[in-house]
């Protein structure tokens, strides 16, 4: 048996390319949830009333201190016990989003805490509502400095998507496993999946740098 089988490689490539779309979809949806929910967590924890901020802090700590895999299993296998049955992809994306939201919320917290007091006071003096204060003044200034940190979590979330194979989501890892067990050849599928992750990670890092540079330009101008 050859170490590397090229015809087999080209045979499985389309399947893996297709699966990589599922991985990308899980990454993008998961991170969208993490980015929005993380901001909500941060604001609720920093500015919410005690009945909200205290339980929220506990919840965030809880999610951060337990493995993502357990959370994925919980959403997929335990939620049905409460009458909530989610498709594997949905449960997986929600678990990824929730888990990374707790990390993102810490990043947002740092960003929000860095806004000068004078900016808040100007908003009060101009009579802006809390909503407009956040949407137009605070958040646009809080986000650019934390884009690199958020970007790191984007890549980390991407690299955690193989965990979804544990609940049989047909993403890259699961597809590679199926190809491997069907053909008794794991070298090609696993190697290709690793390469695809490498390429996407590098591309994402480049993209983040680009966003960062554009934002920095705007800040320097501002």
């Amino acid at each position: 048996m050859k170490f590397w089988d090229w015809p087999f490689t080209f045979e499985i490539l389309p399947m893996l390319a297709w699966a990589s779309l599922v991985t990308l979809e899980a990454t993008i949806l998961g991170f969208a949830i993490a980015a929005v929910l993380g901001l909500a967590f941060a604001i609720g924890r920093m500015f919410g009333p005690a009945w909200l901020s205290v339980p929220l802090a506990g919840f965030i700590e809880f999610i951060r201190s337990t493995p993502l895999l357990i959370q994925i299993f919980f959403l997929f296998f335990v939620f049905p016990e409460f009458g909530i049955s989610l498709p594997a992809m949905t449960a997986g994306v929600m678990a990824l989003g929730l888990h990374y939201a707790t990390y993102c919320s810490e990043v947002y917290r740092a960003g929000l805490a860095n806004i000068a007091r004078g900016q808040w006071e100007a908003c009060t003096a101009l009579n802006l509502t809390a909503f407009h204060t956040f949407r137009d003044v605070i958040i646009p200034q809080a986000i650019p400095p934390i884009v690199p940190a958020l970007g790191n979590y984007f890549v980390a979330l991407f690299k955690d998507t193989p965990l979804l194979s544990a609940i049989a989501v047909l993403e890259l890892m699961q597809t590679a496993k199926i190809i491997g067990s069907d053909n008794f050849r794991y070298t090609e599928p696993i190697t290709i999946v690793g390469l695809i992750f490498l390429i996407f990670s590098l591309a994402a890092a480049g993209l983040i740098r680009l966003v960062e540079m554009r934002l920095n330009r705007r800040i320097r101008r501002a």
Binding site: L126, L128, T129, D136, Q141
Partner: peptide, 25 residues
Amino acid sequence: MVFQHFNLFPHMTALKNCMEAPCTV
């Protein structure tokens, strides 16, 4: 109120600084 350290919104132009509150409030 006008502050000692201006407290302008750094990410908005001079005009946008003056438009924000009239628009939203």
